[in-house]
Design a protein around this nucleic acid. Sequence first.
DNA 1: CGTCTCATTGACACCCTTCAAACGAAGTGG
DNA 2: CCACTTCGTTTGAAGGGTGTCAATGAGACG
Lengths: 225, 225
Amino acid sequence: MTLAYPLDRAPFAHDLRRPEGESERDPLGVDGVRAVYARGKEIFAEEEDADYVYRVMSGAVRTCKILSDGRRQISDFYLPGDVFGIEPGEAHRLSAEAVCDAVVFKMKRKPLMMLSETDCSVSRKLFTLSLHNLTRSQDHMLLLGRKSASERLIWFLMDMARRIPADRIVHLPMSRQDIADYLGLTIETVSRAMTQLQDDGLIELRGCRDVVLRDRDSLEDIAAG
Amino acid sequence: MTLAYPLDRAPFAHDLRRPEGESERDPLGVDGVRAVYARGKEIFAEEEDADYVYRVMSGAVRTCKILSDGRRQISDFYLPGDVFGIEPGEAHRLSAEAVCDAVVFKMKRKPLMMLSETDCSVSRKLFTLSLHNLTRSQDHMLLLGRKSASERLIWFLMDMARRIPADRIVHLPMSRQDIADYLGLTIETVSRAMTQLQDDGLIELRGCRDVVLRDRDSLEDIAAG
DNA sequence: CGTCTCATTGACACCCTTCAAACGAAGTGG
DNA sequence: CCACTTCGTTTGAAGGGTGTCAATGAGACG
């Protein structure tokens, strides 16, 4: 049997076949409902009231910030089991969209925050969760500020290989444009870097979304910096 | 009377003249001691055990990650009142150094974590704190991934103007190299961008560390993106 | 097979980096 | 008071990595 996701990333005992809209309980301890979003659909917008906190059940989600002239930076991708949409204030600081068809669990923010005032285990879970995100964004800043295009791409591929359940082939749920906006590059540069890695024998492309890591050791070394 | 820092950033009722080493209590609710670091001195290193959590009392601190070949990315600068050094695991994920002569309050991590298991207000404070840092790093990622040199510098100056207590002149505690490593640029580019902003009449340099914001509205607009 | 969308490739431009030198402020010693 | 040093900043010239613009290629789907 192959797991749908590594154990430390398993969401929780939801049955994906249960009808949408039925109330269930999140591991964080509050009730909520599932919602389905088609590829590209917006889950929430920047500045919108942050009434809900979300957990990915299947598919993938991106959160991003957009400048007035359209330049976009993707903060992170969220995979099954990941929580997103928690904000320090009343409004969302970034927008969220489905990278591919996705099922997300949404729970009301207010009950969660109220529970965290009385249940220390909940507030500590929230604390741990945001620290985890913070750690990721620190690595991301190093990448955006100081790494070359190929180093960025390798770091991204290794991160995905670690997070996505698959041994030999990493299936990327996102487009080149998403990767570019995550890595602070253009789609052309991502594409060129990808073929360069293939020419160097580090990876092998099986179609543009499936990547075989051919020289995992070298890739690890470069990703580690 | 002029405040040493804006009200929302005031650290706590420590008397800076108290002798170093004497035990005091942090607003987070645990005891600790003050420590003095000269400019450039390391407070903790990457990979080092994260035994303490810190709060800046005076001066400024930087946290950064360094690649094996020396490339450096500064994650953030911490000013009086700011807490730094909280980690999800047992080890520090970044290093911390004094940007200028600085006094920091250090409290043991373990008692703080134990307190947060029973006192919800503490774990919620920690949660809020890490969410605040996360929000900052999201803005920082947008800056590093998608903004031009001058946009980065303007964002930095406006952020400092907001955080540093001064009406007309912003005094930067850090060197050009620090600014460069924070903004993902080189020292030369920062210097050039700075003189360009001066030539454009947006700022005025009074020595290389004192900046007068001449056209605050334009600067705000550009910083907002 | 045609259409649509997305990915790849090429040519060229440009912003930022690199390398190098000059400049300036602060501190030291004669 | 004035060289002299040191360290950090500024400025200049040249090069390179990534962006831009444009055309081609490759899957997916009806």
